[in-house]
Simulated assay, not measured.
Amino acid sequence: MSGARLAYLPLITYPDTVSDEAVAAAVRLALSLDHELHVTTFSAKIPRVSTPLGALLLDVPGMIRVTEENSRNQCQHLQDLVRSHAGRSTKVGCHSRESVPGLTGDAAATEARYFDLSLLPWAEDKPVVQDLAQAVVFGAGRPTVLVPPSGDWAPITHIAVAWDGSRVAARALADAMMLIGPGTRLTALTVVDEKQLERVDIAETLAESLRRRGLTATALSVPLGGRPIAEVLQTSALEAGADLLVMGGFGHSRIRDFVLGGATKGVLAGLRMPVLISH
């Protein structure tokens, strides 16, 4: 007998936060996937420093208190927002924890390991939000769904799998299998001239493998055509009618400096649909 599936939603409150629209989109997506949603709002815990000279000019302790209070208030706002969009659902739980700015991503990545997947509301113009997402993608060891604020992305009935036959693509497909329900369609999506592939028919080979498992799957091979790979993947998935794009995350971290592959970097820079990234 299978148990509940658990989704994790970490929300940062300092020095920036995501929009209410992005949070609402992530909540709707979690509930449409029939996952229990566990939300952590991170309030700022700013280390105290001794500044005798500075205290003559600025009330540093007072500024810290105000900042931390505002962060706690934002935590409460986000939790109220989650509950309002969840409605009467009993599958939502919220709690807050303190985190030192700059270390929130590591804390969220550690928490994410206890859940089936993470949902990350996205903001293209907020580097702190992006840092949090990248820390979870590359540090959790669990799949992460990036959720753009615009559009109604629920339910997920059609999944496009970015397929190049690589290990990370296979891992991403395996992670996405838990999201497949009765009636879910899949598209094996291959960009044929972006890199050297094992052979030209890998999209159809994957689609046939999925059909043998009783799934509804089709193959789609598209040319790069001089466009960025991330644009081709998302445009092709949307034109095929997919609700979710699944892809492997290429990259690694070096003391919080992230080195990303072209497709991963492009998707993070221009998110147009929910994207499950597995690393």
Rank of each mutant, 00 (worst) to 15 (best):
Pro155His: 12
Ile159Thr: 05
Ser118Ile: 14
Ser118Asn: 13
Gln74Phe: 03
Val129Cys: 08
Asp116Ser: 13
Val137Cys: 12
Pro149Asn: 10
Ser89Leu: 09
Leu120Met: 15
Arg65Pro: 01
Gln134Gly: 10
Thr157Pro: 00
Leu117Gly: 02
Gly93Lys: 14
Leu179Asp: 14
Asp106Met: 10
Glu124Trp: 13
Ala172Gln: 03
Lys126His: 14
Ile64Cys: 06
Leu78Ala: 07
Pro101Asn: 07
Ala140Leu: 03
Ala123Leu: 02
Arg65Glu: 14
Thr144Gln: 06
Arg113Ile: 10
Trp153His: 12
Ala107Cys: 03
Gln76Met: 06
Trp153Glu: 04
Gly141Met: 13
Ala174Ile: 07
Thr104Ile: 14
Leu173Ala: 13
Leu117Ser: 06
Ala108Cys: 05
Val161Cys: 07
Ile159Tyr: 02
Ala169Glu: 00
Thr104Gly: 07
Val92Ile: 04
Val100Gln: 08
Gln79Leu: 00
Cys75Asn: 03
Pro149Gly: 14
Gln134Asn: 12
Val82Pro: 01
Leu103Tyr: 05
Leu146Gly: 09
Asp164Tyr: 00
Ala112Trp: 00
Arg83Asn: 09
Leu132Ser: 08
Gly93Cys: 07
Pro143Ser: 12
Met178Lys: 12
Ala112Asp: 07
Leu119Met: 13
Arg142Ser: 02
Val161Met: 04
Gly102Lys: 06
Arg167Phe: 04
Phe115Ala: 15
His158Asn: 10
Trp153Arg: 03
Val137Ile: 15
Ala169Ile: 04
Pro121Asp: 11
Val136Ser: 06
Tyr114Gln: 12
Leu78Asp: 11
Glu98Asn: 02
Asp152Glu: 06
Pro149Trp: 09
Asp106Val: 13
Ser89Asn: 08
Val100Lys: 06
Ser84Trp: 10
Val147Ser: 06
Arg167His: 08
Val161Gln: 04
Ser96Met: 05
Met177Tyr: 10
Lys126Val: 15
Ser166Gly: 08
Ala169Leu: 00
Asp125His: 15
Thr90Met: 05
Arg142Phe: 03
Thr67Pro: 00
Val168Leu: 05
Ala109Leu: 07
Ala112Leu: 07
Thr90His: 07
